[in-house]
Computed example of a mutant assay.
Amino acid sequence: MSSTGLVTGKVVVVTGAGGGIGRDIALAMAREGAKVVVNDIGASVSGEGQDAGPAQKVVDEILAMGGQAAANTDSVSDAAGGARIIQTAIDSFGRIDVVVNNAGILRDRFFHKMSMDEWDAVLKVHLYGAFYVSRAAAPHFKEQESGNYIHMTSTSGLVGNFGQANYSAAKLGVTALSKSIALDMQKFKVRSNCISPFAWSRMIGSIPTETPEEQARVERIKQMTPAKIAPMAVALASDASAHVNGQVFAVRNNEIFLMSQPRPIRSVHRSEGWTPQSVLDQAMPALKSSFFDLERSGDVFSWDPI
């Protein structure tokens, strides 16, 4: 198992690691010397069904390459499950050093058609799940005065997208959760950062491939594999990135972006204060040139990966 040992000896929990991005992060962590807890309930993309197989299969892959790993099939969507995931790390390897909050489901629907259950299920896994697992690790991190959180966010929340009010709200919530953790726990030498991953494997089947141009585009998009996300996660888990805290990165094929965070960009002042009419007559016209367009993620990231 050749590596540079960037995370040798660290115990890493990766949620939703039975496939996709989580699996590749778990494998990459193991290659770099980490002991990995592979968590996955084995559900479908929409969160339905349950199967212990995916988590154990990834554990077997890690063991086969000479690494150390343990499987966990608890759901992140309840506090007791989150606690058991962290406890698996303690029971198996005696400590916890890194939490990768990757578990997620999709229940896409236009906002005006979204059911309460569709809203609730996605928030529970993404936002509540990130909190539950992170919170369970916090006392260990505080006690040992070290620890590292890596959360998966999305440009659906950072920028916007159609039909994903639940997912977008959860993912933007995760970025705020990460910043709060970074602020609250920096005095204990604990870090928290986000990755917004582009990995289009689930979409490949729905993209048209009728013309040579379309076929070539799909081939380019296929390069955006989940494995492209793993190097950033391993780098953030390493002590060599001890200076990186409270940041949001995006990874898209061979590109890495530092994403902006909300800050004031323009202001107007009126010494006598504002009335509703003066807001309309003066403030809005003055600020209008700096308004943001109603863009989707695909409008901002409008070029194909190379």
Rank of each mutant, 00 (worst) to 15 (best):
L158F: 08
A55Q: 05
V174T: 10
T73N: 12
D299S: 07
A52N: 08
P231F: 02
G19C: 04
A216E: 15
S46C: 02
A137P: 11
G104Y: 01
I85V: 09
S289A: 14
L258V: 15
A55M: 08
D304P: 06
W119Y: 06
A136I: 13
G49E: 09
P231W: 01
R202N: 15
G147S: 02
E214L: 04
A136P: 12
A165G: 04
G53E: 15
G66S: 07
D91I: 09
A71V: 01
V12C: 14
P139S: 11
R270T: 03
E145H: 13
A165E: 00
L287A: 12
F188N: 12
I306L: 05
V98L: 00
Y167K: 03
V12K: 06
D281M: 05
S260P: 10
T8S: 13
G163C: 00
S168L: 00
K179P: 06
G246F: 01
T211E: 08
D40S: 14
A71H: 11
A235F: 15
L294K: 15
S297I: 01
D108Q: 06
H269T: 13
V174Q: 08
F249C: 08
Q247F: 01
S289V: 10
T225F: 04
F93I: 04
Q50E: 09
S134E: 06
V251P: 13
I105T: 07
D24E: 12
M152N: 13
D78A: 00
S290D: 14
A70C: 07
D60K: 04
G9H: 08
H112D: 11
A130G: 05
K222I: 08
I96V: 15
P54W: 05
L6S: 10
W274A: 09
N254A: 13
G147L: 00
V159Q: 03
R202S: 15
T175C: 10
V125D: 03
R252F: 11
V37M: 03
Q186W: 10
H151M: 06
S168K: 00
Y167G: 02
G49D: 05
V14N: 08
R296Q: 10
